[in-house]
Computed example of a mutant assay.
Amino acid sequence: MASSVSAPGHPGEQAAPDPVKLIAVRDTPLSLDEVFQALGDAAAGGTALFVGTVRNHDGGADVDALGYSCHPTAEAEMRRIAEKVVAEYPVRALAAVHRVGDLGVGDLAVIVGVSCPHRGEAFAACRKLIDDLKHEVPIWKHQRFSDGTEEWVGAC
């Protein structure tokens, strides 16, 4: 009877040849199903997703709505970050989408996901992807508060 455990040298334990499946900045609602579908890979034993939503508060103030805008290079920067993650982890599939335009409380602002041979790698790669995206991609948030004030927040 053949063992169901992959040998360390098995191709499924390595990064896929072209794992970046979906990178996009969109002005339309994001789809969790679309991102999850992009992450499918028969060699992946772990898939990690992060979904960022618009919350109703920030810094002690009530948020009514917000808008995201981006530099024209935002999508290229997302791809650059994705390639860095792929170089560091055995990624089988990776996807990242970010919304721009006006959003309301509860709307999906960003979805990123990674599939890897094992769950630990998937969690770590997904965390690196969202953290680097948040700090490096030129996407800006304009928050509007219930008291009539507003605030611009740097990259993402």
Rank of each mutant, 00 (worst) to 15 (best):
F123T: 07
D33N: 03
R127S: 10
V105N: 09
M1D: 02
D102W: 03
T149N: 01
G60E: 01
I111F: 11
S31A: 07
Q14S: 02
H57I: 05
G104Q: 14
V137A: 14
I111A: 06
V97F: 08
A61E: 11
G154V: 06
G59L: 09
A65M: 05
A15D: 07
G120A: 14
L49S: 12
H135N: 07
Q37P: 00
M78F: 15
E121W: 15
E151Q: 15
Y68F: 15
A95H: 07
C116R: 12
Y68D: 02
D27I: 05
V54G: 04
F123R: 05
D33K: 13
H98V: 06
E150S: 06
G67Y: 01
H71I: 00
K141S: 04
V25I: 15
R26E: 10
A24K: 02
M1T: 12
F50V: 08
V105Y: 14
R26S: 11
G101S: 00
Y68P: 06
V51E: 02
A82I: 08
V20I: 15
H142R: 00
S3I: 02
H135Y: 08
W140C: 04
D147S: 14
P90V: 11
L39A: 12
E75H: 09
S31M: 10
T28S: 14
T28L: 03
D107W: 15
E150W: 02
L133S: 03
P17G: 13
A42Y: 09
V97R: 06
G60T: 13
R127L: 10
D64F: 04
L66P: 04
E136G: 13
E77G: 00
G120V: 13
H71T: 11
L49R: 06
D107M: 14
A42H: 09
S4R: 10
L94E: 03
L129Q: 07
I139L: 04
R55C: 11
V100L: 03
A48M: 08
L108I: 08
L108M: 01
S4Y: 14
A87K: 14
A65V: 04
K141G: 03
V110F: 13
M78V: 14
H135I: 00
A42P: 06
D102A: 13
K128Q: 05
I130P: 00
D41C: 10
I81K: 00
D102E: 12
Q143T: 06
A61P: 00
D41F: 07
V54E: 04
A109E: 01
V100Q: 02
V97Q: 13
V153P: 02
A44L: 08
H71A: 11
L103P: 01
H10K: 13
G52F: 12
T53W: 06
G40H: 15
P90T: 09
V137P: 08
K84F: 04
G52M: 08
D62F: 12
R79T: 08
A76F: 08
V20T: 11
P17L: 14
A16P: 05
